[in-house]
Design a protein around this nucleic acid. Structure first.
Lengths: 127, 127
DNA sequence: CAGATCATTAACCATATCGTTAAGTATAAG
DNA sequence: CTTATACTTAACGATATGGTTAATGATCTG
């Protein structure tokens, strides 16, 4: 099990860096599915899917339940899902990215406001 | 240059799956820095840093500006940054994860009034 | 029991990744 | 011109990743 935040981020980002694994997660967002269900849409072999499922499971992104010979998989939704760590990490940068993206707009808006509203001395940056 | 969404997600998630690269991005969030600046905090060799910078650059996460012999790097903040794709992808799942984490009655309530959480200020999805 | 089904593990291969050291390129400074 | 500085490229090695086929395990079904 992965405990350190940086290790968790490594693990979750690399788990998400594969299109087959992202597809599997998308499928699981619609509900629990068996290994066969999950393998069906792909042209790769069943063992390859099995390995992807293992990667997702070890990243704590999915959970496995065995019922007879069938393995059922579902998204691991819990308060310390590594997905939250990833989302939090990205969110931090999203704010930066949007601030940068908005800066020209904001500048132009501030410049035009200044003509009508000279009282604007506030700092735009939130961080 | 990476164009397909799935390829962009592959590229950005794998770029983010390395702690050194995430550290570099964190450093660059504070402002532009030279290669030397960026290499300084790490115990790895300068060529190793150079490679990480190339990976981030090719993922369109950073931009390079050459001034004499010095290379200056900054975060690539633009409307179609792949970081946005990554954030949007995760955001979709974050909602699912939080919905699952919330209690059953919250789920039932959400199902009955079928409205968005007014507290949710992080909707960045363009779709 | 015998065979079919669901899935994993083993063994292998090709390619990618992350690091190294050594050499090369380009620019600045003495 | 010579040397120092900033950085990249080349060549290499160890390990990881993503796929394959073949074999194995475990459970259901006739």
């Amino acid at each position: 099990m992965v405990n350190d935040l940086s290790d968790r981020l490594d693990t979750v980002f690399s788990a998400l860096a594969d299109p087959t694994r992202r597809s599997i997660l998308e499928r699981l967002a619609h509900g629990e599915a068996s290994g066969t269900d999950l393998a069906q849409p792909f042209s790769i072999s069943v063992p390859a899917i099995s390995k992807h499922l293992r990667v997702l499971e070890e990243a704590d992104l999915i959970l496995r339940r065995k019922e007879g010979r069938t393995h059922w998989f579902r998204l691991a939704a819990n308060p310390d899902s590594p997905m939250r760590d990833a989302a939090a990490w990205l969110e931090h940068y999203r704010q930066f990215w949007e601030a940068q993206f908005d800066s020209l707009d904001t500048y132009l808006q501030a410049a035009s406001d200044e003509e009508q509203d000279p009282d604007d001395s506030s700092n735009i940056s939130g961080r």
